[in-house]
Amino acid sequence: MSNPGSAPLVAVDGLTKRFPIAAGLFRKPTSFIHAVDDVSFRLGGSESLGLVGESGCGKTTVGKLLVKLLEPTGGNITYRFPAPAVGGHLAGSVEASNIRGRQLRVFRRQAQMIFQDPYESMNPRRTVYDTIAEPLAVQGIGDVVGRLDRVSEILNLVGLTPAGAFLFRRPHELSGGQRQRVAIARALVIGPSFVVADEPTSMLDVSSRTGIMSLMQELAERLGIAYLYITHDLAVARYMCHRIAVMYLGKIVEMAETEELLRNPLHPYTRALLSAVPSPDPMRRREPPNIEGDLSLPIDPPARCRFYDRCPMATERCANSPHPPAEEKAPTHWVACYEA
């Protein structure tokens, strides 16, 4: 599943992550949650890819694997970062598994993450300055005066002005939207070229949500940042992403350009997701999603299609074949379904 054009910033191939269950200190785990299973995609520089799915589908795990907060069980991630403004850099294309020790610290300058919960992602005892300057401090970039200037500058950039009024506030002195701006500032202060945004707006109110969304878009354009935008909300992904990948129980089931995916969903799960979104438009009447049952945890799942149990279109073939491979049904529109 690749995006035509220049060499991708991040190339993910067959990425797999399994979490062991009920493992004691001296016992070998007997079963695994297949949180991410054979996921592949490409992310170009300055591109925004949406990773959409319900809770527990593995989307956050993919994000953490990409910024190396977790180590994968299998598969490859290859990065090709541009030379950074400061410090040493990871030259050419590097494999995630080769980034260790000193290199990991340099890697952190290139790949950052914005977390979901603005109320929990800041240390309540530290000030806005401490929080934003932390990446600079642990990376040993600049001196105290230089950091203060840099932090003030980035506060202005994320719309917290005048910076002086915010520098020494603690999280409880900020609103949800303001906290998320601080979180964005912390992620961007060392000038990354790739940011994983894990549901940055899902805990915010409608009116602050749009502000954060447009801020993130503006900064991506201005600073040339690529996003992996993780969300459960297709409507938000529509506004934030060039392409959308839909995940279901650890697998990417469909991936396409945003408008193409929304207008012409091919996978039955994508269709169900789309028809379940409520809308305030009194003119819009929607069909109920036609899938059954509840989401389960992918604990040692059978080899067949992950969606088989809930699929309205399932056939004999789906029952007896392995999980369908991704096929390009239309240009740049990939679907993993035998019946699509």
Binding site: L69, R108, Q112, F115, S121, M122, N123, P135, V138
Partner: peptide, 17 residues
């Protein structure tokens, strides 16, 4: 398990930090 611990690690903070 608070996200700010993960954020500190993502920033490049050591275990000691």
């Amino acid at each position: 398990v608070k996200p700010y611990i993960e954020a500190a690690r993502a920033a490049g903070g050591s275990h000691f930090h």
